[in-house]
C-alpha cells in the first residue's frame, strides 16, 4: 500500500490537473459559443450565394481543363493543438480513407494540411503534402485564410494540376457530435445546387456579361464553401475540446474520490497500527 504522504501528493497533483481541465472546458465553451454564432451569421450569405450560383450554373458542368494531371488535392483541416479527444484522429483517418478511394480511381491524392496536427501526420506517414498552414491566430475561420485557400485551389485547378479539389473538415452537428466530412469543391457541381423554383440564367439582365460574371461567381462560391468549412471546423474543434475536457474533469473528480478513500484507509491503518503497538507494549509491561 502506498504511503500516506505519496497518496497526498497524488491528490494534490490530480487536483491541479483538474483545475486546468476545468478552465480549458470553460474557455472552450465560450469559444464554442462564439464559433456557433459565426456559423449562424454565415448562413444567409452561403444560402443566397448557392442559390445564385445554382441559377447561373444550372445545366452546366465544369470540367477539369484538358490534359489535367491525374491528381486530386485534399485540403485537410485539423486543429493546431491537441487535448480535444478523437477530433484530429477521426479527421485524419477519414482523410486516409478518402485518399485510398481516390487511388482506386487512379487519381493520386495530394494533401494540403491546415493545422499543426495534419502537418505532423502527413510528415509522419509520408503523404505527399504540397502545402501547409499552421495558423497561430486565435481564430481559425478567417476570411483571409479562406480566400488564400480558395485562390490556391482555383489557380492550380485551372492550371491543370488537379482533376478535383476537396476539403475534409469536421462538420459541427451538435456540441456532442462532430462528423468528419469530405466535400468536393472543384469542379463545382451544378446539379447539387439547383433547387426547385430557381430562376434560369435567361431571366436575368446580366452585366457585364455572363462569361465575365461566371468566374466571379465561382470565385465567391469557392471562397464561401471554404470559409464555411473553416467555420464548421472551428466550432467542431471547440466542441470536441469541451467534451474531452469535461470528461477529463469528471475522471479527475473520480480519481480524487478514490484516492481520498485510499488515503483515509491508509491513515486509519496507521492509527490502528500505532494503537496495537501501544496496547501490545502495555500488555507486555503488565504481564
Amino acid at each position: 500500500m502506498a504511503t500516506l504522504k505519496a497518496i497526498r501528493r497524488r491528490i494534490t497533483s490530480v487536483k491541479s490537473t483538474q483545475q486546468v481541465t476545468r478552465a480549458m472546458k470553460l474557455v472552450s465553451a465560450a469559444k464554442l459559443r462564439r464559433a456557433q454564432d459565426a456559423l449562424l451569421n454565415d448562413r444567409p450569405y452561403a444560402e443566397s450565394l448557392s442559390k445564385l450560383a445554382g441559377s447561373l450554373l444550372a445545366g452546366q458542368t465544369m470540367e477539369p481543363p484538358p490534359g489535367a494531371q491525374h491528381a486530386g488535392l485534399i485540403t485537410v483541416i485539423t486543429s493546431d493543438r491537441g487535448l480535444c479527444g478523437g477530433y484530429n484522429a477521426n479527421l485524419l483517418r477519414h482523410a486516409e480513407e478518402q485518399a485510398d478511394g481516390m487511388r482506386k480511381e487512379g487519381i493520386e491524392p495530394v494533401f494540403f494540411a491546415v493545422g499543426r496536427k495534419a502537418v505532423e501526420h502527413f510528415k509522419r506517414t509520408g503523404g505527399r503534402m504540397v502545402g501547409q498552414r499552421i495558423n497561430n491566430t486565435p481564430r481559425l475561420a478567417t476570411l483571409e485564410l479562406a480566400t488564400s485557400l480558395a485562390d490556391m485551389m482555383l489557380n492550380e485547378f485551372r492550371a491543370g494540376q488537379y482533376q478535383q479539389t476537396a476539403v475534409i473538415y469536421s462538420q459541427f452537428r451538435s456540441a456532442l457530435s462532430q462528423r468528419p466530412t469530405y466535400e468536393r469543391i472543384l469542379p463545382v457541381e451544378a446539379g447539387t445546387q439547383t433547387a426547385e423554383g430557381v430562376a434560369g440564367p435567361s431571366e436575368y439582365l446580366i452585366e457585364p456579361s455572363r462569361a465575365e460574371l461566371l468566374p466571379v461567381i465561382i470565385q465567391s462560391y469557392v471562397e464561401s464553401a471554404v470559409f464555411h468549412a473553416l467555420l464548421e471546423a472551428e466550432a467542431s474543434e471547440h466542441a470536441a475540446r469541451m467534451t474531452a475536457m469535461d470528461s477529463a474533469s469528471n475522471n479527475a473528480a473520480d480519481m480524487i474520490a478514490r484516492l481520498t478513500l485510499e488515503m483515509n484507509r491508509a491513515r486509519q491503518a496507521g492509527i490502528t497500527r500505532e494503537l496495537m503497538d501501544i496496547v501490545g507494549g502495555a500488555e507486555a509491561l503488565s504481564a
Partner: peptide, 19 residues
Amino acid sequence: VNPLGEFGVLPQHINYLTS
C-alpha cells in the same frame, strides 16, 4: 459600382445580376 461603372437600382427594377 460594377466593372462598367456606377449604377443605381430603383424600386421595381428588372431582374439583374452583376459583380
